[in-house]
């Protein structure tokens, strides 16, 4: 039982790290640019497809990862220039529609370019296998590497946001956009930077998760909604909120799916417990979101009272 708990906790942390990488970009785009971007999940998918292609071309995961990063940056900048930039001054409704159109285009475009069947990315040799944790407990190295990479990026983002000039502008932009631009900051350039950074993080998340998932066209969708929940819980515009929210959502989701049916067995008969547990578990994160919003409509770390 304890072993299962530790395993699931690690799985939750790994999912949480991924969600954080995606949510960090999304929350910045929301908070600083006030743009709702439904196409953010699509970027995660593009990252996975890019690494699948480059890894197959070069025969190496690492070379694929290195090639993926500049390609992701280009994708982010092109999307920002063509679709997102004309939407800055528009209503949220227009942004929803245009980015929804973008989701349709990219999903279908990926199907045309790479076909509908799922791709797989080989696990890098260096990180394959499992290591023993406590007693008989084993855990895949690659998943630990994902957690480590994510924590490293989180630390990097923390330094970037809290201890650099760009970070100061980002924080200022999230608090009061008009004031920042009135003080003579090139807000257009800042927006492009924020969007490209968000795109890069989302693509990176998609790329590092590719070896343990199958790469297919639906992968962006499920993640997008969970990321929205993360951003709403954490508070729009807050990187710290995105981090806490991502871990909270992922751990609640993972533990709920495993232990929900087990706990329910104490109060009802096993078969009914299994069924109820399976039905309630996917709803758990949304109930969590509703509860948090009920207490704090602006999210856990939200500043603006929108």
């Amino acid at each position: 039982m304890t072993n299962l708990f530790i395993l699931q906790l690690l799985n939750g942390a790994q999912l949480g790290i991924l969600l954080f990488l995606i949510a960090a970009g999304l929350t910045l785009v929301f908070g600083i640019m006030d743009v709702i971007n439904l196409a953010h999940g699509v970027l995660y998918m593009i990252g996975a497809y890019l690494i699948a292609t480059f890894a197959a071309l070069t025969g190496s995961f690492w070379a694929g990862l290195l090639l993926m990063l500049p390609a992701a940056l280009v994708v982010g900048l092109v999307i920002e220039r063509l679709v997102i930039r004309p939407l800055y001054a528009r209503s949220h409704l227009d942004q929803v529609l245009a980015t929804f159109g973008l989701v349709m285009i990219v999903n279908e475009g990926v199907k045309i370019l790479w076909g509908a069947s799922p791709l797989s990315v080989p696990m890098p040799e260096l990180l394959s296998g499992s290591i023993p944790l406590i007693g008989p407990l084993q855990y895949p190295v690659y998943r630990l590497a994902i957690i480590a990479a994510g924590l490293g990026i989180a630390a990097g983002l923390y330094v970037l946001v809290n201890h650099t000039r760009v970070g100061m502008l980002l924080r200022a932009g999230a608090t009061n956009r008009e004031m920042v631009s009135a003080l003579g900051v090139d807000i257009g350039k800042l927006f492009s930077l924020v969007f490209a950074l968000g795109a890069l993080l989302a693509c990176f998340a998609g790329a590092i998760v590719a070896p343990i998932l199958s790469v297919d066209t639906g992968m962006g969708e499920s993640v997008l909604i969970l990321t929205f929940v993360v951003v709403v819980i954490g508070g729009i515009g807050s990187i710290r909120g995105a981090f806490m929210g991502a871990l909270l959502v992922a751990i609640v989701d993972t533990l709920g799916r495993t232990f929900g049916p087990i706990l329910l067995r104490y109060v009802m008969e096993p078969s009914a417990a299994g069924q109820t547990g399976r039905m309630l578990a996917p709803m758990l994160v949304y109930i969590l979101m509703a509860a948090i919003l009920f207490a704090r409509p602006q999210g856990l770390f939200g500043q603006r009272t929108t």
Partner: peptide
């Protein structure tokens, strides 16, 4: 619950609740 918020929040929360209902029927 959703109407406690506005704008972008409202859009995302209604989306999340919609997905909650979706997953309920999926399971």
């Amino acid at each position: 619950i959703s109407l406690r918020t506005r704008g972008v929040y409202f859009i995302m929360i209604t989306l999340a609740f919609g997905q909650m209902a979706y997953f309920f029927f999926v399971s």
